Computed example of a mutant assay.
Amino acid sequence: MTIRFKGPAGPATLSVTEVGPNKVEYTVKSGSGRSQGGASGPGQGCITVLRSNGGGNSCSGLGDAARPSPQPDAVVIQATTGEDGTAILRIVSE
């Protein structure tokens, strides 16, 4: 599945490359940049932040993490594994 959206540096895409019980993997492309993230295991997740001058990725145990907060001039992507084994994907922008 691929989701197209407007990122801080122009058009961007989020491609979910794998979903399974307690697992989600994805790739984000924005401008000339590319970031990958993935979570495996209950309560695990990744957050990718896109900005016009680049971005960053962080993966760890997120538990029942709430929706990420919007950040100025950024798009925040959160992919987590839910407590029931499902994948949860959130895209937040200001």
Rank of each mutant, 00 (worst) to 15 (best):
A9S: 08
V28L: 13
R34K: 15
S35F: 13
Q71G: 13
K29T: 14
T17M: 05
Q44K: 09
P68G: 12
G56F: 13
E83Q: 04
G56P: 12
P21F: 03
P21Q: 02
S15R: 06
G85N: 01
M1N: 03
T2Q: 04
P72F: 06
R4C: 02
P21D: 01
S69D: 13
V49H: 09
A9G: 05
V28R: 04
T17C: 03
S40M: 14
G33T: 11
V75Q: 05
I88Y: 02
L89R: 01
V76P: 01
G20L: 02
G55Q: 00
T27R: 14
R90Y: 06
L89A: 03
S32L: 13
T48C: 13
V49K: 11
E18R: 04
G31A: 13
D64E: 15
V92M: 03
L50M: 15
T81I: 07
A12P: 01
I88G: 06
T17N: 01
L14Y: 04
T80P: 02
T2Y: 00
D73Q: 15
G41C: 08
G43H: 11
M1K: 03
L14Q: 06
V16C: 05
P72R: 14
L14K: 00
T80I: 10
D73I: 05
S40E: 15
T86A: 10
A74L: 07
T27Q: 12
A79I: 09
T17K: 01
I91G: 00
S15P: 03
S69P: 04
C46D: 08
L50W: 14
S35L: 12
G33E: 15
N22S: 13
G43M: 08
T27M: 10
I3G: 03
N57I: 14
T81S: 09
A74E: 06
C46G: 09
V49A: 11
G38M: 09
G82K: 00
Q71L: 15
G61I: 10
T13D: 02
N53F: 13
L14E: 01
S35W: 12
S52E: 14
G7A: 07
I77S: 03
S35Y: 11
S93A: 05
P68H: 11
G56E: 15
D64S: 15
G41Q: 08
R51G: 14
I88F: 06
V92F: 01
C46Q: 07
N22A: 14
L62G: 05
R34T: 15
E18C: 00
R34F: 11
I91R: 02
K6P: 06
P68S: 13
V75D: 03
D84I: 06
V28Y: 07
S93Q: 01
G20E: 02
S30E: 05
T80D: 05
K29W: 10
S52C: 11
T2C: 01
